[in-house]
């Protein structure tokens, strides 16, 4: 009986994960659009990200805080920048809000993360720094800023 329960649980979990793994056309249940929606690939193969995204985050966490490594690839801020969705007004929807990218899947897989009690759940920069993040990357200024930031 116990085994049955466990296999049922595993079944539910795997179905849950498959349901949210979209990007093949069907929307991954987010309301608006994110930069990721218009891109082909994540920072690592999707299969790997689905299973081990948190390993990259936890590794980057110590590399950055203790050793000052500031690469963009596995940066938490960068995940949010690419995966956060925007409403019709172009305003970012917190990525941990109900139905949003990080939250949706974690609810389904019964995962709880506390990262967003400290980390901004949408791109937010001090007014003066001139760093903004908007959906419209046609904007030449935006492009220039990204190019400059990437160096």
């Amino acid at each position: 009986m116990k085994h049955l329960k466990i296999s049922f649980l595993i079944f539910i979990l795997s179905v849950g994960i498959q349901n949210v793994s979209s990007h093949d056309g069907s929307p991954h249940v987010t309301t608006g659009k994110s930069k990721a929606d218009s891109q082909e690939a994540c920072v690592e193969p999707t299969e790997l990200m689905r299973k081990e995204h948190y390993m990259f985050l936890l590794h980057q966490r110590d590399e950055t805080v203790i050793d000052g490594v500031r690469t963009k690839k596995h940066s938490f801020a960068n995940c949010i920048d690419c995966h956060v969705s925007y409403d019709e007004q172009g305003k970012a929807i917190p990525i941990n809000a109900e139905g949003q990218f990080c939250q949706e899947c974690h609810v389904k897989t019964a995962t709880n993360i506390t990262c967003f009690s400290c980390h901004a759940a949408e791109p937010r920069f001090p007014q003066h720094s001139g760093m903004t993040s908007k959906m419209n990357s046609n904007d030449i200024n935006e492009l220039v800023k990204h190019i400059n930031n990437d160096k």
């Binding site: 500031r70 949010i80 400290c118 901004a120 791109p123 920069f125």
Partner: peptide, 29 residues
Amino acid sequence: ETLTQQNTNAPRGKGCVESCNLCVNRIDH
């Protein structure tokens, strides 16, 4: 207190100590 509206470059939250870090994120960049 529980915080909201933190800056992307300066995560911070309830239950932790904090202080001047010489703008470490800016300096690293």
